[in-house]
Design a protein around this nucleic acid. Sequence first.
DNA 1: ACACAAGGTTGGATCGTTCCAACCTGGTGA
DNA 2: TCACCAGGTTGGAACGATCCAACCTTGTGT
Lengths: 364, 364
Amino acid sequence: MDDRPGVGRPTLETVARRARVSRQTVSNVLNSPHLVHPETRSRVERAIEVLRYRPHQAARSLRTHRSRLIGVRMEAFGDGINGSILDRFIHALTEVAEGHGYRVLVYTAADDASEIAAYEDLLGTHEIDAFILTSTHRADPRTAWLASRNTPFVTFGRPWDGTEHHSWVDVDGAAGTREATRRLCALGHQRIAFLGWPEGSGVGDDRRAGWEDALRGCGWDPAALVVAGPDGVDEGREGAHRLLDGAVPPTAFVCASDSLALGAIGALSDLGLVPGPDLPVIGFDDTAVARAIGLTSLAQPLGQAAQLCVNLMAALLGTDPDGTSTRPAHHLLRPELVVRATGLGGPPTGHPTATITSARTPTS
Amino acid sequence: MDDRPGVGRPTLETVARRARVSRQTVSNVLNSPHLVHPETRSRVERAIEVLRYRPHQAARSLRTHRSRLIGVRMEAFGDGINGSILDRFIHALTEVAEGHGYRVLVYTAADDASEIAAYEDLLGTHEIDAFILTSTHRADPRTAWLASRNTPFVTFGRPWDGTEHHSWVDVDGAAGTREATRRLCALGHQRIAFLGWPEGSGVGDDRRAGWEDALRGCGWDPAALVVAGPDGVDEGREGAHRLLDGAVPPTAFVCASDSLALGAIGALSDLGLVPGPDLPVIGFDDTAVARAIGLTSLAQPLGQAAQLCVNLMAALLGTDPDGTSTRPAHHLLRPELVVRATGLGGPPTGHPTATITSARTPTS
DNA sequence: ACACAAGGTTGGATCGTTCCAACCTGGTGA
DNA sequence: TCACCAGGTTGGAACGATCCAACCTTGTGT
């Protein structure tokens, strides 16, 4: 007699009484609708509606060991320029995951070891269903750990060690720099430099490879046109200076990041030069900074990447009714070249932003 | 006989058997250690250690209706310049929350109504313990909804309607613009313009008020020195042009955002002018773009804000053992002025970044 | 007329924890 | 000697869902 509406939260039992069926039937309506007679089903559905019933996830988890939660690490942003793209990825991921009935739980970790400790904790206490890993790198211990525990996961970033075997989504950095470099070649550039990172980082090597490949393809020699250093504006500036002071000063710059590209622009400015169609500078990641200063850059399709990550994850979790292959799968996406004031001489951008163009037209 | 170590996950029962006590005693060790005899306690703790036991949160939630989860909305970033600061806030929040034993669950919502729908879902299914709200604004329906459900929450952003009564943390925008404006006055500037947003937005009005206040304090008339429009680089550029073309062209710009400031820099460039000690431009939020182009800006103390938000939340949830006041409390933090190339002529920044300085030294 | 199968539906047991009332054990005061 | 108390510990019940085996129909074939 105390199941008056509004008293306490509705449970399966409440709904069942109202629809004059048993608990289990209500549960079936939610989880295996095909088992329930259509007429019964609609009666139950109406009761659910009226009572604004929502299944209690904790009770579900307790029984099924599924939480409908996926874990993603929030990374510390270095200079704030490049870090932001992971935030954009997480945003997209959250949105896509919600469409699949999953919620995103974020956590922080200082390094791989503490990230693994976080896995252990999250799996133990919250029974996270799956993890989406970002920033994969060589000798990454995380994937092996997760695999050894049979925890489903998808990486945004390919496995750089080659031996691994799991689902992943990545952006084809080489394809991006290759396209940019080819287009520069087509415009007549020969001394196209590459500002990159020290050898050994998967992402950096990949982006450099595309440039080198294209350059050779055009018949030019990449030697003496590459400089490598840690990521950062100052590092980019310094690297660009080394190239510009060298024997074969470049006429174009392809960079592994927007930070480095920004540094290159600074170096050119130091020499009284301004990037543009005749002296292109191309960055990578299409960050807010690139948009702000009119830097041509290669944009990662983050929304699409998030979508695919969730799809692969759903496949691993067997959410998709038709038992689609549980075998690991992967996708390699092409970045998109966003042409702005600093290069590849597309049509005038209409709103050449701020400072870049300013130095060219000092008066009026 | 089937409690061999390593078989299945350890539960309270497993630990209890190993420590030769009852389930409940183990539970007490975890939740009310003072009830347990020290000797017993250490025996139990050792068993927990050895078995790597972790309490199962779903089972806990089921019984206690607490999830140790807090909800935060991930907002869509407009032009990617200003949006990123909320991501930084969420990052800090996640880190601080972890220190208090809470995890952060993120979600997306297109508007207030769908955010409220998200609350309803998250409370119903995951029993989120509390929400941290960002971007409070006038006539914000979210706080009333949460209050009516007795759901604990803290807002990052003060209640702009005055009538509300809850815990919040905010940054004193007026104090920031006031300080910047005063310093400009002290340097001899009289025509200090303000580039802001349309009246009615709490944050925008606040930031404008600080400028106006300081300007009057210095004996100058703010009339004809203010321009308002939507946020954005183009809008800032246009607004600055209107001011520069007017009867009293400003000699300094204080802006409500880095986007607007960037626009102002663009407008100056259009006229062959370059911001700097003699023609300062000051932004707000100290975004990555500001750092990248050397824009002086007012930085919000996001880490501190996150810390205080979590503290207030913990107080509401009664986590702190000493039952500190459950009454709503609030904190108003001062932003910090970060001086760079575009203004307030501090000592040379050492690394004047890229383009801004470039136009001043076209050769060598 | 009866065994049998398939579609729908049901109630009991269970997941791992905390709440609760009861229990045991010494020590204290009448 | 016994009632009483407080500190420490215990086992049963409950939280809200799903798993599982059994149940009741109804229709079909023999």
